[in-house]
Amino acid sequence: MGSFEFLLDGIVRAFELIVTLNPYILSITGVSIKVSGTATLLAAMTAIPLAFALSFVQFRGRHAVITLVNTGMGLPPVFVGLFVFVMLVPAGPLGFLNRIFTPEAMIIAQYILITPIITGITLSAIKAVPEPIIETVYTLGGREKDVVLTTLLEARFGVITAVLAGLGRALAEVGAILIVGGNIAYTGSVGGIGEGLSYTRTLTTAITSETSKGDISTSIALGIILIAIYLFVNVAAGFFRRQD
């Protein structure tokens, strides 16, 4: 093989796979979007109210929670993966749920990973709302609930940016979902492109396994899709940042 020839071959084959809408590649993309999308959605539904509670409600342990959030923003994915794995495995405390090696297990892992991230970024978006805005709410006759609502409105682009940052992180993550999801595809796909479809195989975990099998062109195809989605999410985030 000549130098870089394999790379060129890989890229050509990758575009072939993408353009022909290869079902294996499509199903992997679908699982990635569903798992990360759902995890992001659930994380946002936790993180945004949590960030508001931390910003507006003085309660015991508030600082401890903020410290926890800040620590959680940098949690190593493999640690989260291991934690969720030992919890969900049938021999573990939550084994009765029978959810190990399922998309749900991956959603749980990613939820744990990105909830602190969305909370943290939302917290700073709320903090960035100027004090005069809040005083204006009060002077116009608003109550505490109006302050919260108006802050949400004023910080809305920051909050959306936070959610998209979480989504981006979830999509790019591999360590945790590889452990708890098992990188499973239905029969037919192992050993190369086949008719089998992904069950818990995502763009990132598939790149890992395809590369280790030496199937560089499939990896490149998956990589191109991953980067395209990631780029789209970041362009969207940039769009919302500019709205601010």
Binding site: Y138, G141, D146, L153, E154
Partner: peptide
Amino acid sequence: RQRSSLLFQTPAVFNLSVFDNVAYGLKV
């Protein structure tokens, strides 16, 4: 405050339309 209003030297403007800004006190 329901009966009064303070206008700052530099107004704090809500990131909303002019209508929604002016309507604020009424909606509240």
